[in-house]
Simulated assay, not measured.
Amino acid sequence: MTFPRLFPGQILIDDQIGHRVVLDPGQSLTLGRAADFPLGMDDGFMHRVFLQVWDTDGTWMITNRGSRMAASIQPRAENSFSQSRLGPGASLPLPLGRSAAVFATSVTTYEIDVTVAATLRPPTGGTGAGRVGEAPMTVGELILNEEQVDPLRALAAPLVRRPGTDLSEVPTVRDLEQTLGWSQKKVNTKIDYLSKLLGNSGVRGFSARNGNAPTRRLTLARYAQENYWSLRKQV
């Protein structure tokens, strides 16, 4: 498939089924069942106008104009690892490079590719750079070895492979035993250890008071999904 050439400042929106459009700075586009960019034409649960992509002073924004559906903005660029939730009425800046807007009705899951073209990179210095070496080191630096990364990747795999799926697709302990070739005891021990490690590193949601073993497994899966591209590079 040949994609149009993008110039700095432009944005490409692609529904992956043959419909795509390039916007120039200053332009705006709505997406939905009865919008500029059609989505879910035969899906009655799709909002007539759901998302709007627009430019403000050189920054591409996305707004949820729906009333009940949320979207997940998932960066796909090489150096972007986190995702953002876009609830009804909310607006977010779109990341540079390629990302995906993922959302679902009871009929199906949608994934729209969005590419923001830019050649700019963050500056290496700047105000305050000279003070970094004087500040205390950040508490809770997290360095994982391969045996710690492997279960995180396995937990996140179905969520990354099928964006928009819910936590019911997270591998069970038995699934992890088969995927990793580990015993049940080793899988459970590793889940407990990783949860404690992340909690001690300041990652929210992993305190000792938070839930039972299944809850820790699901929380680890969500963390791994949000950090999946970073985990792929870590070992």
Rank of each mutant, 00 (worst) to 15 (best):
S72M: 15
S72Y: 15
S72Q: 15
P75Y: 08
R76S: 07
R76G: 07
R76L: 07
E78R: 07
N79Y: 05
N79C: 05
N79H: 15
Q83H: 11
Q83D: 09
S84M: 07
S84Q: 08
S84R: 12
R85G: 05
R85S: 10
P88A: 03
L92A: 10
P93L: 15
L94C: 13
G97R: 05
G97W: 02
G97K: 11
R98A: 07
R98D: 09
S99A: 07
A101R: 02
A101D: 00
V102H: 12
S106W: 10
S106K: 13
S106A: 13
T108M: 15
T108A: 09
T109F: 13
D113S: 14
V114L: 12
T115P: 02
T115W: 03
V116M: 00
A118P: 06
A118M: 05
T119S: 12
P122W: 06
T124Y: 04
T124D: 14
T124A: 04
G125T: 04
G128A: 00
A129S: 06
G130I: 03
R131F: 05
V132A: 04
A135R: 12
P136A: 13
T138W: 13
T138M: 06
E141Y: 10
L144V: 03
N145R: 13
E147C: 10
P151C: 00
P151K: 00
L152F: 00
R153L: 08
R153S: 10
A154W: 07
A154C: 08
A154P: 00
L155M: 13
L155G: 02
A156S: 14
P158N: 06
P158R: 14
L159I: 15
V160Y: 01
R161F: 11
R162V: 11
R162W: 07
P163N: 07
G164P: 02
T165Q: 13
D166H: 12
D166T: 15
D166K: 04
S168V: 13
S168A: 03
S168G: 10
E169L: 03
E169N: 15
V170N: 00
P171M: 06
V173R: 00
E177V: 15
Q178F: 00
T179A: 10
L180Q: 00
G181Y: 00
W182V: 02
Q184K: 13
K186F: 01
V187Q: 02
K190E: 03
Y193L: 15
Y193E: 09
S195A: 09
K196P: 07
L197Q: 06
N200K: 14
S201V: 06
S201M: 09
G202T: 08
V203E: 07
